[in-house]
Structure formats: structure tokens, C-alpha cells
Simulated assay, not measured.
Amino acid sequence: MSLPPIRETIRQYGLSASKALGQNFLLDEQLLDRIAAIPGDLRGRNVLEVGPGPGGLTRALLRAGANVTAIEMDERCLPALAELDEHFPGQLTVIHGDAMRHDPADLFDGPYAVVANLPYNVGTALYTGWMSGTEWPPQWSSLTLMFQLEVAQRIVSEPNTGAYGRLAVLSQWRSSAKIAMKVHRSAFTPPPKVMSAIVHVTPVPAPPGVSSPVLEAVTEAAFGQRRKMLRQSLKRVPGALDALKELGIDETRRAETLSVSEFVSIAEKLSPR
């Protein structure tokens, strides 16, 4: 027996998107299949999905042949996800809980891809957690994530733009990030107030000799006072002003003018040997 349309499943279980949980449901099956195709061939691959809700994207991932581990906080959605388990036996594992409290390393023995329509209220926090690991390359092979368009633009932004900041440096110093698809607000139920976009991120080799925590400390200080010159914003980071002199970086510049590679060079000077 075939699965009913996701809209009918939502109606059957009396589901509605929870604002408190940052939910917005995607119902367009063709759009969901396109999203599931972004990370490439998923047949037999392990995929982590956060916040599956009633399972629209989950269906698309399962149709693509993925072995999906889905973490869902909203217990109202569990019966709908259990229905999917019956139609795709052996492919779906559902964990009822908070994704912020689960370490994916405990869920997978080997590599996995992350594909998720992230809940808006925790999306950035989850993303920075995946990007901030000290071990590189990470266990995840790619991240394919739905964000508000504004956040997606911050991830892929370039220097000397209003969107450029810590998130861009964190994303680009040892990974390749691109906006794979924009998604109109009308595709969601209920429609959010803003446009959304899918960001696809793949790891690349990390620059040698650079500590991730040090780079994060430098960017936090620099962009925490982004209107100030570097000599002011970085003065509380031990050794940072000396590093600027050694690298020939003008201390009267502001954070938004520095390239990702310049931030990496500063962090390299300050990283433990």
C-alpha cells in the first residue's frame, strides 16, 4: 500500500507547526526530492536528519535509498514517522529527543551526511557545532541544510559586505559552502515571514597549524566590535596585535575588510606549536 500524501498525514494526525519549536512544514514532494538529491547518490549512505516533523523530507531521503537517523523533539510527530518505518523497513531510526543533546559520533560508526530542514530556533547553533570540531576532516561528509535566506547569505558571504562575519569565516576556512537552492516562503506550511535557502557544505583540507578555538576567539573579538579598528577590537586577544604587525596587516582596518585567509594567518600565529 502506498503512502498517503504528506498533507493527508498531517491532517490524519492533527499536526500543526509549532512556533515554539521553530517548525515550518514542507509539503511539495518534488521540491523535497530535489533537496534530497543535492548531496548526491544516497543509496546505502547514512544520513542524519534533525527535526523531521511529519516526515516530508524523511520520505524523500528514504526514497533516495538513504539509511536515515532522525532526531525529533515533538512527540506529536512520532506516529507519522512510525508509519514511514513500516514502508521503508530497516532504513529509518527515529530518536525522540533534543538534537542539541545528541552527539552524532555516538549514532554512527562511520561517515554520514546531514540533510535537514532545521528548526529556525536552533539551526545556527547546530550548524556552528558541526563546523567547530577540532577533528578535521569531520565524520560528516556533507551538510545540506535549510536556513533563513539571511543566515544562508551570512554563511557564503565575502569580505566588505554587510553579511560578512564570524559565520562566513567559520564556514569557509576549511570547507566549501554554497547556496544550492532558494526556497520561497510559500512552499512552507505555515509560510514563514522570510525566504529560505538550502546551503550545501563539504569539508576541504584544513590549513596546517591552525587551532579552531583560537580562530573562533579571534573572529569573536574582531566581529564583536566590528565598527572598531582591529587595534581596538583585538587588543584583548593576547598576541593578536603583534601578529598583525608580523603579517603586515594594517591595524587601522576593520574586521569586515579581512579575508578568510588573513584571519587564518592571524590564528596560525597565535595557535600553540
Score class of each variant (00 low, 15 high):
Met1Ser: 12
Pro5Ser: 05
Arg7Asn: 01
Thr9Arg: 15
Ile10His: 01
Arg11Gln: 12
Gln12Phe: 09
Leu21Arg: 11
Gln23Tyr: 09
Gln23Thr: 10
Gln30Pro: 00
Pro39Val: 06
Asp41Tyr: 05
Leu42Gly: 12
Arg43Ala: 15
Gly53Phe: 02
Leu57His: 00
Leu62Tyr: 04
Leu62Ile: 10
Arg63Gln: 15
Glu75Tyr: 10
Cys77Thr: 07
Leu78Ile: 15
Ala80Lys: 00
Gly90Trp: 12
His96Tyr: 06
His102Cys: 09
Asp109Gln: 11
Tyr112His: 14
Asn117Cys: 02
Pro119Asn: 07
Pro119Lys: 11
Asn121His: 15
Tyr127Lys: 00
Trp136His: 15
Trp136Ser: 13
Gln139Pro: 09
Ser142Trp: 06
Phe147Asn: 09
Leu149Trp: 10
Gln153His: 13
Ser157Ile: 05
Pro159Trp: 02
Thr161Trp: 04
Val169Arg: 08
Val169Met: 08
Trp173Gln: 02
Ile179Gly: 11
Ala180Pro: 03
Met181Tyr: 08
His184Lys: 14
Val194Thr: 13
Ile198Lys: 09
Val201Ser: 05
Ala206Asn: 09
Pro207Thr: 12
Val214Ile: 14
Ala222Pro: 05
Arg227Met: 09
Gln232Val: 12
Ser233Glu: 06
Asp242Thr: 12
Arg254Tyr: 04
Ala255Met: 02
Ser265His: 06
Ser265Leu: 10
Ser265Pro: 02
Ile266Trp: 06
Glu268Leu: 06
Lys269Asp: 00
Lys269Arg: 14
Pro272Arg: 08
